[in-house]
Amino acid sequence: MNRIFLLLSLFLIVAVAVAYYYLGGFKKAEVKLETTAQPIFVAGRYFEGPANSEAFGDLTREAYQIRTSGKLRGTFGNIFYNDPAKASETAKVFVGLIVDDTVSQALPQGYRYRTFAGGQRVLHAQIEASYLVAPDKLYTGVKDAAKTQGLTLQNVFLERFPTSGPVEVWAAVK
């Protein structure tokens, strides 16, 4: 009986490790210090409150639905105005879609534009991983790079979650 439980436990551990591997959990984020060439436009809505709240989830689902319905062309993205690691307490985030410009598409009702400024120094992190594990890897990479390079984060972060390709974070630095 104990052998069955041992074998079942080992099988479960291996299955979880394989799933984590396929999600990209063992990869490290690639982080570079850059200067943004041009502004990045995000169309969406502002949210302030706990990141695990229903309202935050509703905004995320709304942005996903707007993109999939074709009402607005873009890539899912957020601008955090505080440390996302502390967002479970109070997130200050603009949730929406990263768009090419502010004139070629009509905004859905209630949506506004926000800009992640061009010409600013940022730590740009990217990783080929699932959105389930990527944020933790990206933010850990950004914080480690900032510490290593003696940079101070400004607590303004742009996240980009494309349907294919690497997940990215730009973190403004002083």
Rank of each mutant, 00 (worst) to 15 (best):
R45M: 09
L151P: 05
L132E: 01
T60P: 14
I98G: 03
A125H: 07
F76Y: 15
Y21K: 07
L72K: 05
Q126A: 13
R121D: 09
V93N: 06
T148K: 10
D83H: 11
G24M: 00
F76C: 13
A146N: 04
E30T: 06
P162D: 03
A63Y: 13
L123G: 11
T35D: 00
L10G: 15
A17Y: 06
A134T: 05
A146Y: 03
K27G: 02
A125F: 12
F157K: 01
F161V: 00
R61C: 15
F76L: 15
F76G: 10
K147L: 13
G74H: 10
G74D: 08
Y113D: 00
V95A: 07
D83V: 03
A55H: 13
Q65R: 15
A91V: 04
Q105M: 12
A129V: 12
R160E: 00
F11A: 10
N52E: 11
E34Y: 11
F94P: 05
F11Q: 04
R73T: 10
W170N: 00
L151H: 01
T90W: 14
S88D: 15
G165F: 03
Q38R: 07
V133A: 09
V99A: 12
V31K: 00
S69C: 12
P166L: 02
A19K: 12
R112V: 12
F11H: 09
A29S: 06
A146E: 03
F157D: 00
Y81T: 02
A146H: 02
N82F: 14
T90Y: 15
L6E: 09
G44C: 13
F157C: 06
G77W: 08
A55W: 06
A117L: 14
G24F: 00
P84L: 07
D101G: 04
A145L: 08
F157W: 07
S88M: 12
R114A: 14
V142G: 04
Y111C: 14
P39H: 01
L59A: 14
R114D: 08
G49T: 04
Y22H: 11
L7K: 07
V103H: 10
K137F: 12
P135I: 03
P50W: 02
